[in-house]
């Protein structure tokens, strides 16, 4: 009969320090959680974006007002974060479409495409930011 004292002690992996410092999310996991976070951010930004589109098309004054508004530092930073969210969601989404087709499923390729997604979204964000302001 099994004795409780003979059981091997369970590892305490889910302590807070373990979660913070010992268990590392693998790279494709980072792409995944960022895909979810960026998607949430984009949803929350829909109303704001639509408001800006509405004003920019409504009148020339509105267009200039939106342009001035987009030049304010906090607005500019928020828009840059949203542009990054869009780019990340875009590239990571394309990666998932290929994974659905069983392309790039092996670990070395999955890691490589994860790096590619992170790099491409940051690069495109920087380029669009430079282009816009």
């Amino acid at each position: 009969m099994a004795n409780a004292t003979t059981r091997r002690p369970r590892p305490k992996y889910l302590s807070l320090p373990a979660l913070l410092f010992e268990i590392r999310l693998p790279l494709p996991g980072w792409v995944s959680i960022l895909h979810r976070i960026s998607g949430l951010m984009l949803f929350l930004a829909i109303v704001w974006m639509l408001y800006l589109l509405d004003r920019s098309l409504a009148s020339e004054d509105g267009f200039e007002a939106v342009r001035r508004y987009a030049g304010l530092l906090p607005v500019k930073l928020s828009l840059l974060v949203l542009i990054w969210a869009f780019c990340h969601h875009f590239f990571a989404g394309i990666r998932y479409l290929f994974l659905d087709l069983d392309k790039g499923v092996d670990l070395p390729t999955a890691r490589l495409t994860s790096w590619a997604v992170l790099a491409a979204s940051l690069a495109l964000t920087a380029w669009l930011g430079a282009k816009l302001w």
Binding site: I46, L50, D54, A58
Partner: peptide, 19 residues
């Protein structure tokens, strides 16, 4: 709430596009 936001913004989009 999510559905209401989605439905509302969809209607708003039509309004913006065909003003």
């Amino acid at each position: 709430a999510v559905l209401l936001v989605i439905a509302g913004t969809l209607g708003w989009t039509v309004q913006i596009l065909w003003r």
